[in-house]
Design a protein around this nucleic acid. Structure first.
Lengths: 334, 334
DNA sequence: CTGAAAGCGCTAACAC
DNA sequence: GTGTTAGCGCTTTCAG
């Protein structure tokens, strides 16, 4: 049963002082015999230490908050697993908070993290931190992942610009020559950077007179991918391939392509981010594998170092992605 | 910045007593003028109430725990969204905990929920509660979802037996006559029940001399579906259709089928649970839609009623699934 | 190595 | 309406 007995009751039963009980549960030196008595009494009484009281006293809890924009996106759940594994191993419990990409919810959870004296927080920040409404730091160790904050905090990132470049380059090498780009909202950093990466290659190859006409900003969701892909297919001179800037957008794009009877490799597809739960052969699509889990692991490691008092100056770690070109190139003519 | 100022400092600055500050932040009646002063002082000082202290005093926090076996399964994240929406609306923050289907982690998180005085918990219990190692109740409102606990607690469930029946029946009506079953571990209740539902129909139709030869117990993961499907295809007289007992197993099964060049409707597939992020036409597969989000919503509602002191006897709510038969039946002969 | 005692910041009686 | 005060259960000096 829950949290009902206190160290006082345990102390009495064990014939020691409350302080000794506390010491036993905190690894402070206590004589073997008393330790035994305390453990026995605690077990008998079904004692579970009251974390609230401990946290109030210590001004520090054993919880780490992971604040994510979208818990339903496998990219972030994969990251969560990475954070969790490291946190658990270091004796911290992970609590996950979903912001829905809403700055209001984000600052609410940051307040809670502070107010609950959590040991630290890993934050994948929401997109829209309009001007003055800067992210409010919780006054305890914080690592940002996936997106930057503009604030001087540790960060674990990937090279979104390079990912965009690599995606389009792999398609080009597969024989495609009119490679469009569908990406997320134009105020989301990762979306913009990946599109910029795409554009840099497209410009260099002089692929389009007007690259803007082959770019679609949409939502980072399945229907965002659908809308964008449909719109591209309707254009006067459609592309022969597309770079989709995130995992679930790719799903939407592939759905629309399938419905139009155009599947890879007839129409080239590169996805930035792994296709979750796919039933099509992954070999038919160029996948820029994103180190989501690894980002989580790294962020958690940095965080724990900070919690333990690491005094290093602020760091940014950039993790490398890995491009896996489609096995089948473009079959002959466009 | 974090949690540094106290009600005492706010009180001093506002020229009132700490109790008044507390009252302002808890909606107790305070004169308009003092309220104004307090709010001003709090804003100036950037005051955030210390939840740890409040919780210690009230023996109740504003957090709800949602303890899930697998945060990476879209079935559960969808459920999480349901819980979250209701919790948020009622003024509770949701913390998600991932047990990895490990009873140890589960009881750890239950202890934490109790020890942190969380307002309540929604629990999707792990499978293996071996005999004596019964689930330990946290001494506060708890609703179980998806799986039963064997304990007298409120529960929100679905009819797994019926889901199994409906899946195989839809395939039968689509013209398939040798319908196998791949399901989860034989100690997971949902897995067993769904398989039992399948068997009841298969028996009644006298589909197989030995139904056991057409059942595969595996893991509730993608590779579990792969292994099971592969094994079925290798059998001396293979089936012409399959019921896959959960969403991600179905993915695995569809992958193996695609690799073997057998796609629906040539080979019939029914999936219990929605296909996440699918790129194949959902119409080609029979989907037994599971009300995951709705289960989350319902569980959260029941929980909040309990938190508010609802004295009703223990309830079990069973939510209805919805069968969506594949659009295309079996093309002629097996 | 052990006990006594002072709070951590807040809320909820209890007086006024 | 408002202030005073006594803890919630724990950790942690400080003595011994």
């Amino acid at each position: 049963m829950g949290c009902v007995t206190t160290i006082y009751e345990v102390a009495e039963r064990a014939g020691v002082s409350p302080a000794t009980v506390s010491r036993v549960f905190n690894g402070s030196p206590v004589s073997a015999e008393k330790t035994r008595h305390v453990r026995k009494a605690a077990a008998d009484l079904n004692f579970v230490p009251n974390r609230t009281a401990r946290t109030l006293r210590r001004k520090n809890s054993e919880m780490i908050a992971l604040i994510l924009p979208d818990i339903e996106n496998p990219y972030f759940t994969s990251m969560a697993r990475g954070v969790e594994d490291v946190a658990q191993a270091a004796g911290y419990s992970l609590v996950l908070c979903n912001t829905d990409d809403d700055p209001g919810k984000e600052s609410q959870y940051l307040d809670i993290a502070a107010s609950e004296h959590m040991a630290g927080v890993v934050l994948a920040p929401v997109a829209r931190h309009a001007d003055e409404q800067l992210l409010e730091l919780p006054g305890r160790p914080l690592i940002s992942v996936d997106r930057t904050t503009g604030l001087p905090v540790d960060a674990v990132m990937m090279d979104n610009f390079a990912a965009g470049k690599d995606a389009v380059t792999a398609l080009y090498q597969g024989g495609y020559r009119r490679i469009a780009c569908i990406t997320g909202p134009d105020d989301v950093e990762t979306a913009v950077e990946r599109a910029r990466g795409w554009k840099s290659v497209v410009d260099r190859r002089q692929m389009f007179a007007d690259p803007g006409a082959f770019t679609r900003f949409s939502t980072f969701r399945v229907d965002g991918g659908r809308t964008a892909m449909a719109s591209l297919l309707e254009s006067p001179s459609p592309p022969d391939a597309v770079v989709a800037a995130n995992n679930v957008m790719s799903i939407g794009a592939l759905q629309v392509l399938a419905e139009a009877g155009m599947r890879p490799p007839h129409f080239g597809v590169a996805t930035i981010g792994d296709l979750p739960f796919t039933t099509i052969s992954p070999k038919s699509v160029t996948v820029v594998h994103l180190p989501a889990r690894h980002m989580g692991v790294t962020a958690a490691q940095l965080l724990i170092e900070r919690i333990q008092g690491d005094p290093q100056p602020v760091r940014t770690v950039v993790l490398r992605h890995e491009t896996r070109p489609a096995a089948y190139p473009h079959p002959a003519g466009a």
